[in-house]
Nucleic acid binder design. Structure first.
Length: 369
DNA sequence: AAACCGGGGAG
DNA sequence: CTCCCAGGTTT
């Protein structure tokens, strides 16, 4: 018989399950999405929680449920409104996929989420993690979730040196999680492991003294906690130099909408471009704006700089005050344009960098000619 | 398998 | 500053 890569004693598994269940029952946080096991609410919360911390998600989740208390309201809403609710959460494809999935669920399944993993997996934006979360929490299906928290807990518990961020070894951690899963309480078990990872088995300075599975944890018992989990190095991120233009025509300035897909898809922003060469930014800005929008502008003055960090690159941007000169709008790249009063910026979903730029206008003497 | 896709909090 | 997060999709 082929020996399983993951081999844990059955007795040990049951003890770990019992300790975790007791700890979770006593210590679980009272989170908004835990007031019910309604699959719609579980789904929305899990989408928001992707790569995003609980404290960040809570106010977004509450605003979302105020506006879309039932799935049909979400399905009938327009994407622009959904993006506005999502503004600042990041990974905007999540909102796009979720909106699309809501429409599919309402059109094909009478507004009810599929109650199988296979059915859930067919929906846009629902992958292995979210399908397992909904299936286990809402439908009591024994599917183990594997997220960053779970992998860290497992790597420490079983002192496994497999890098937790190596996509090629995902299978190993899925095996551990499946073996350990409490078949009778899959939803509570999954949430217990994740909450343990979040609050006790933290990446740095884990609180092992409060850990309910301390006696089973191999790295604790051998005093090697600081050596786990093992992770592969990430490469350093490049710095991009950008130039942005606030182009005024009278009291209004030009706002552009990014293409629906890709980076910051569907969000609004100021005209701008990445500066690849060390040429004079003034003339280059004028030319790039013309290429993007069809209009000619005059660059008045540089009014400040902003910086922002993404996962894969950093941005250092100059911001220029500009004035419309001539020409009709003819978009090349952006999908829409709008002339707006600066105070109206809050009606449009924009990314973080844009919200760092607009406050610069407050101290400016005179914006219009 | 690897790249792409945001933003924020902790240390 | 660096690190990492209740991942999914695309290439």
């Amino acid at each position: 018989m082929k020996k399983s890569a993951v081999d844990i004693k059955k007795n040990t598994i049951q003890k770990i399950q019992k300790s975790l269940a007791r700890w979770y029952q006593k210590n679980r946080l009272d989170l908004p999405w835990r007031k019910t096991d309604d699959p719609y609410r579980v789904w929305i919360s899990e989408v928001m929680l992707q790569q995003t911390r609980i404290e960040t998600v809570i106010p977004y989740y509450n605003r979302f449920m105020d506006k879309y208390p039932e799935i049909k309201f979400l399905a009938e809403s327009d994407l622009q409104s959904v993006l506005k609710i999502w503004e600042g959460l990041g990974y905007y494809a999540r909102a796009r996929n979720m909106h699309k999935a809501a429409q599919i669920i309402c059109e094909k399944f009478q507004g009810r989420l599929p109650d199988t993993r296979e059915g859930l997996l067919k929906l846009p934006g629902i992958g292995e993690y979210i399908s397992a979360a909904i299936a286990s929490i809402s439908f009591r299906i024994p599917a183990a979730v594997v997220d960053g928290n779970v992998k860290r807990v497992l790597a420490r518990l079983f002192m496994d040196s497999t890098p937790t961020n190596d996509t090629g070894r995902k299978n190993l951690f899925e095996s551990y999680a499946a073996k350990l899963l409490d078949q009778d309480q899959p939803g509570d078990f999954n949430q217990a492991v994740m909450e343990l990872g979040q609050r006790i088995c933290r990446p740095g300075n884990p609180i092992c003294s409060d850990c309910p599975v301390q006696e089973f944890c191999k790295v604790f018992q051998t005093n090697r906690i600081d050596q786990y989990p093992v992770r592969v190095d990430r490469k350093s991120v490049p710095l991009k130099k950008m130039n942005y233009a606030i182009v005024f025509q009278g009291k209004k300035c030009l706002l552009l909408r990014r293409p629906a897909k890709g980076l910051l898809g569907g969000l609004w922003e100021l005209p701008g471009y990445e500066q690849h060469h060390r040429t004079a930014p003034g003339k280059q800005l004028e030319n790039m704006i013309c290429r993007m929008t069809g209009i000619r502008i005059r660059v008045e003055e540089k009014i400040g700089t902003v910086s922002h960090a993404y996962t894969h690159f950093k941005v250092a941007a100059n911001v220029y005050l500009c004035f419309y000169k001539s020409g009709e709008i003819c978009l090349n790249g952006p999908t829409e344009h709008q002339w707006i009063l600066p105070a109206e910026i809050h009606h449009y979903p924009c990314h973080k960098l844009i919200h760092k730029i607009f406050p610069m206008l407050h101290g400016l003497a005179n914006q219009d000619e």
